[in-house]
Nucleic acid binder design. Sequence first.
DNA 1: GCCAACGTTGGC
DNA 2: GCCAACGTTGGC
Length: 152
Amino acid sequence: MNYWLMKSEPDTFGINDLINRPHQTEHWDGVRNYQARNMIRDEMKLGDLVFFYHSNCDAPGIVGMMEVVKEAYPDHTAFDPDNKHFDPKSDPAKPTWMMVDVKYVRTLARIITLAELKGKPELAELALVRRGNRLSIMPVSQQQWEFILALE
DNA sequence: GCCAACGTTGGC
DNA sequence: GCCAACGTTGGC
């Protein structure tokens, strides 16, 4: 089983929005970065656990946990001219962008903030805390996952 | 709101 | 294939 971290802006789609979806499940659309796409397409598997990270907000940090409940399939928002993430170059016959479905697992007892994570030597290799990192989806090792949860 | 860092685009 | 310009991300 693999572990992941995915970012979302709470003003757009926060963890409470996921809770309020039918079956507490939603497709994770809008990823338009090839490196992130490759991870979605090739590596995210049913049952993988994912940290829900709130970005671009007052207190950026990990707020909860979710589970992959459907593996990669075409991100239909890329074909919708009215969608913010429309990509005119993506051919529906050969989709460029993929997404998975995720289901809410639980909210953490507290927000584990980016500021806190940055100070931990155990997390020095975590992409999130590395300089200039902008990936919206990144792998988390089992050791990193357990270390972070122990901070809760 | 600022701006550093990064990915993508497109001229050449 | 190089690289400058541009747009976006996202912390602060």
